[in-house]
Write a protein that binds this DNA or RNA. Sequence first.
DNA 1: GTCTATATAGTGATAGAC
DNA 2: GTCTATCACTATATAGAC
Lengths: 193, 193
Amino acid sequence: MARTAGSHSDITGPRVRDAALRLFARGGYAAVSMRAIAAEVGVQAGALYNYTPDKQTLLFDLMEGHMTELLAAARDDPALDARERLHRFVAFHIRFHHARPDAVFIAYMELRNLTPENFARIEALRGAYEDGLEQILRDGVAAEAFRVEDTKIATLAIIAMLTGVNTWFRTGGRLSLEEVTAQYWEMVRRAVM
Amino acid sequence: MARTAGSHSDITGPRVRDAALRLFARGGYAAVSMRAIAAEVGVQAGALYNYTPDKQTLLFDLMEGHMTELLAAARDDPALDARERLHRFVAFHIRFHHARPDAVFIAYMELRNLTPENFARIEALRGAYEDGLEQILRDGVAAEAFRVEDTKIATLAIIAMLTGVNTWFRTGGRLSLEEVTAQYWEMVRRAVM
DNA sequence: GTCTATATAGTGATAGAC
DNA sequence: GTCTATCACTATATAGAC
């Protein structure tokens, strides 16, 4: 397949996003230059502006894409009993976050580098995700399956605990992700039941 | 007290650190210029270099100061029973971190902006703090007061959960810090007992 | 679509006057 | 100890050639 020199936009766009994701996660949004992203992709800095209007939008698109994907993947089935729904949430959260450490890192660390408008949009998505877990806890309390004094606090505590796995877990370590998940589930289960 | 114009080093040093702490927490190390710090203090940029050899050292000193203070304040009494030691740890961690949100934020967010040598020193301090909690859990397991499958995992889970309070708690909200602490203690207690 | 070149502004750090 | 002035770079973003 001959390719016109200087023309391969169909793949450059995703490569820009991939490079930005990796570099932002490693060095931080403010410390990573557009030139560095361009060098990672293998183009000159000016070429990036065919794919994003500016650096801020590039960051926002990465974060919004991650949060949207998270919300779409977090399927809950209210027909199941609350314990099973919570169990699935715990396993899903750990697995999903472990699979995309760079995006998770950026979604938590770069919030302050968003414009106020962009920040509000990301926070709304995060709030919607938290609402999903809180609904499980509320239903469990209503069914007298859980004992939780304040479902909002329990929601935030559980999510913080689970997301923390990403900061230390490495494949090939002492425990598998499945073993880690089982232990977190046991702690969560005891904390609310 | 007359003061020689252009000479008040006894207070400028702490003010440089305070300004850097506040600005780094708000905007991020990479995004905050030495000129911005100087403006906050009320001096010119060049004057900052009377108090720090460079920007990196300024960041490191803030983080090391915070971690050293944390370790010094986290007093444990092995003579007490494990449940009481854990209760005190939970209350201490939440209270200490709530009192210095900027330093806590920097200590978690700016690790990647440290040189490798400085990073290692901060991580060693963090590890020492975690060891304190893990020792409580181990002693509790040995005394059959706690049921914990893996004390290292439980340590990381508990610290992540407790530190998360800083991301959402605001004085004057629906609950007081004491009420929040009581609820977190209840969740931690159930998770390990 | 990508290049080179550039406009405009900001960066960390230093030198020397006072 | 702080100031002004400056060095040597780097930044984001754009213009116009190809």
